[in-house]
Amino acid sequence: MLRPAPAALVALLAAACGGTPTPPPPTKVEVSSHPAEIQPPERDVRNPFRRADRDPPPPRSEPQLPPAELGQALAAAAAARAAGNDVEVTQALLPCANKIPKSTRCEGELALVLAKSAGHKAESDYYLQHAIADDDPAADADFYGRLAAALRLAPMLPEAAVALQRRIARLPEPAAADWLALAEVLQGLPRREAEAAEALQRAFERDPSQLKYLGDAGELLSQVPGRGAEALTILQRYRESIRTTEPELLPGLDQRIAQVQAELNPPAVAPGTAPAHAKSAKPATPK
């Protein structure tokens, strides 16, 4: 008994004899092998090929260097920084960065170098945040001053204010520039006007030639509820100081002083009468 020829053979014979070829039946595929269906593995946070501009360092896990070696690393980094060699600074500090326990100075100095490059934004922000999280008694005023400058550029203004306060606390005689820097940062933060005004007054005490510090302190304090009387005293003192040297500023200053005075002493309203600024009620239109 003859067996039927396979469909593919029939198609070939038909084509050879000049007939129309018959396509073979489709083959059923049970499992797809298309590349689009293969999902990539999750990214390993410890991957050495991570991007420093967007990926922070991995979680802390390795132990810190022994105290002697840590001191040597910090000293080597300080010498390299003095020589202006950022590459050597980085190489000296990497062994003590992101370790347990944390070294505030190591991570702060490393952050200051990394912050110079936009390609290390995530790393530098990570180390800046960890460096300012603790007040290291071994870190001096210069360290916190440089840290404050980097935090302002980050920008991390609340942290920059903390760094400046730590710098000032370490200085036997803070300069006007120190108090002015703190005032500028505080003015960029909500509800810190009173602190900024106090810092400006301290700056004026250090440099009385800068009368603008006095005027700005009074203006800031006038915006703080309950501090209007103090603001008025400062603004009047400022007016007297510039009365002969900067008379062109007097009209605007007098207007501001009048506003503060009006806020402190609103006009009395007789019982049963509406305030002068209140709108009269319109009579009802009869229907």
Score class of each variant (00 low, 15 high):
L151S: 11
L151H: 09
L151P: 09
L151T: 11
R152W: 01
A154F: 01
A154W: 05
P155K: 10
M156C: 01
L157H: 11
P158Y: 10
P158W: 04
P158S: 08
P158R: 08
A161V: 09
A161K: 03
A161M: 05
A163C: 04
L164E: 15
L164I: 12
Q165T: 04
Q165Y: 02
R166F: 07
R167I: 02
R167Q: 15
A169V: 01
A169L: 06
A169Y: 04
R170Q: 03
R170Y: 05
L171D: 04
L171T: 03
L171V: 11
L171H: 05
L171S: 04
P172W: 04
P172T: 08
E173L: 10
E173Y: 02
E173G: 00
P174D: 11
P174W: 12
P174N: 08
P174K: 12
P174H: 09
A175T: 13
A177G: 11
A177P: 01
D178F: 07
L180R: 14
A181H: 00
L182Y: 08
L182H: 10
A183R: 04
A183Q: 06
A183M: 10
E184G: 09
V185I: 04
L186S: 07
L186R: 07
Q187F: 03
Q187Y: 03
P190R: 08
P190G: 05
R192C: 00
R192V: 10
E193S: 15
E193H: 07
E195F: 03
E195P: 00
A196Y: 00
A196M: 01
A197T: 12
A197W: 11
E198Y: 01
E198R: 11
A199D: 06
A199G: 03
Q201N: 12
A203M: 02
A203C: 07
F204Y: 15
F204R: 13
F204T: 02
F204P: 01
F204K: 05
R206S: 12
D207Q: 12
P208D: 11
P208G: 12
L211N: 03
Y213I: 01
Y213F: 15
L214N: 03
L214D: 05
L214H: 02
G215T: 09
D216H: 10
A217H: 10
G218M: 08
G218S: 06
E219N: 06
E219C: 00
L221N: 06
L221Q: 12
S222P: 07
S222I: 06
Q223P: 00
Q223A: 14
V224K: 09
P225G: 10
P225A: 07
G226N: 08
G226T: 06
G226S: 05
R227G: 01
R227T: 00
G228E: 15
G228I: 05
G228W: 07
A229P: 02
A229C: 05
E230S: 12
A231V: 10
T233F: 07
I234L: 15
L235D: 04
Q236D: 14
Q236N: 13
Q236M: 14
R239V: 02
R239T: 10
R239C: 08
E240V: 08
S241A: 15
S241L: 14
S241E: 14
S241K: 14
I242A: 11
T244K: 14
